[in-house]
Computed example of a mutant assay.
Amino acid sequence: MHAPREPLDDAIADFSHRRVDVDGVVKTVRVAGSGPAVVLMPEMPGISPDVLRLARWVRDAGFTVYLPSLFGVDGARPTVEGGERVVRRACVSAEFRAFAGGGTSPVVVWLRGLARQAHAECGGPGVGAVGLCFTGNFALTMAIEPAVIAPVVNHPSLPLDDPAGLEMSDEDARAVQERVARDGLKVLAYRFDDDRWCTGQRFAAYRALLGDAFDGRVLPGSSARTDPNPFFRDVVRTPHSVVTAHLVDEAGHPTVRARDEILAFLANRLRRPGSSEGDRLGE
Rank of each mutant, 00 (worst) to 15 (best):
A3L: 15
A3P: 10
P4H: 14
R5K: 12
E6Y: 04
P7D: 10
D9P: 13
D9N: 15
I12A: 14
D14E: 14
F15M: 14
S16M: 07
S16C: 06
H17G: 02
H17C: 11
V20N: 07
D21P: 04
V25K: 07
K27H: 15
T28Y: 06
R30E: 07
R30Y: 15
A32F: 08
A32H: 01
S34H: 10
S34D: 13
M44V: 12
P45N: 15
S48W: 08
L52C: 11
T64S: 08
Y66V: 02
L67N: 04
L67Q: 07
S69M: 08
F71A: 03
D74Y: 13
T79S: 07
T79W: 00
G82Q: 02
E84Q: 14
V87H: 10
V87I: 12
A90T: 13
C91E: 15
V92I: 13
S93R: 05
E95D: 15
E95F: 04
A98G: 07
F99G: 09
G102K: 09
S105W: 02
V108K: 00
V109Q: 08
W110Q: 09
L111Y: 06
L111T: 03
R112I: 00
Q117W: 05
E121Q: 14
V127Y: 03
F134Q: 00
N137D: 04
N137M: 11
A139L: 09
A139R: 05
L140Q: 01
M142L: 06
I144L: 08
I144E: 03
E145P: 01
P146D: 15
P146L: 14
A150E: 02
N154R: 04
H155E: 08
S157H: 03
L158P: 02
P159Q: 12
P159D: 12
D162A: 13
A164V: 07
A164H: 08
E167M: 08
D172S: 06
A173H: 05
R174M: 09
A175T: 06
Q177W: 11
R179S: 11
D183H: 15
L185H: 12
V187K: 00
L188F: 04
Y190N: 03
D193E: 07
D193R: 05
D194Q: 12
Q201Y: 13
Y206C: 10
Y206V: 02
A208G: 05
A208T: 12
L210V: 08
A213E: 14
G216Y: 10
R217D: 03
L219G: 01
S223T: 14
A224I: 10
D227Y: 01
P228H: 07
P228S: 11
F232P: 06
D234Q: 15
D234E: 15
V236Y: 03
V236D: 08
S241R: 00
V242Q: 01
V243S: 00
T244P: 02
D249Y: 06
G252I: 15
H253Q: 10
T255N: 01
A258Q: 04
R259Y: 02
D260R: 12
E261N: 09
E261Y: 09
A267P: 00
R269N: 03
L270F: 02
R271Q: 04
P273K: 07
P273G: 10
P273Y: 11
S275M: 11
S275P: 05
S275T: 10
E277D: 13
D279A: 13
R280T: 14
L281G: 00
